[in-house]
Design a protein around this nucleic acid. Sequence first.
DNA 1: TGGACAGGCACGATTACCTCA
DNA 2: TGTGAGGTAATCGTGCCTGTC
Length: 266
Amino acid sequence: MMCNTRLSLSLGLSTTPPHQNNKKGKLSTNDDNQELTLCLSTSSECTNNYDNDRINPQLLGGVNSSVSSFSNTSSVKRERYASSFEEEVENLETKKVLLISPKGLIDHNDDDEEDVHDYGTRKKLRLTKEQSDVLEDSFKEHTTLNSKQKRDLARRLSLRPRQVEVWFQNRRARTKLKQTEVDCEILRKCYEDLKDENRRLNKEIQELKSLKKSQPFRVQLSAATLSMCQSCERTYNGGATDNSTKISFSIGDQKPHFYGIPSQIH
DNA sequence: TGGACAGGCACGATTACCTCA
DNA sequence: TGTGAGGTAATCGTGCCTGTC
């Protein structure tokens, strides 16, 4: 989508975005010609081709050089990660141009260890308990954030806005997954109950059929004369006036309620 | 006024790192 | 010490909405 073009700079260097080369996002070069990449760009040019979270700003030098081939992406989400990018670029103001070698990043200013990642691996942040708690509290208040809330939260937690955004996305996903599991369990229970009910009703039908056979003159059943008791709130044959033939079933009862039928049937 | 386009955002699916048993 | 499972941060692709030209 965003990073699907190889960049060919005027220096004749090229690369493929890290995340496209392999699953681990390792930087690699074209083995055939052993090209190296030298990224010379300001933030805006680079964000035109890379999501800020997908290419480390450290890969970008502070050289203010416009490179035309950086601006060819049509659906670049320029602003999406802009704040985080700019923040990091700001941190890198003093850094020099960084070279990317086949073995990864060569940092010429490696006194700041936190900023120096081996971009052969995707560094994974572990949020502290405090950060998680704050995010949880915030999530309880509102499950989505507007830009200002995101920025404020990020500043408060010393995170990048993008990280806050991702956390909320994942949190929403987890909530939804949990709710789906709950719903599934409820449906499963309903299904089991209905199955039991169906089994019970079938059994009663069989019992009534056999009863009809053994006592044909005492119980006259037909679909037209079956009715339900009012407590079941089921429809019944309102036209039937002969109480002696009305039979009622009550959902949940082990035995049907018979109206106007001799008690020995029970 | 309608269409094309870009940006922003949310989402689902997936990947990959990390921890722990 | 190696390993598999689970949790989760991060990535990717896509669709929808909105603003602008």
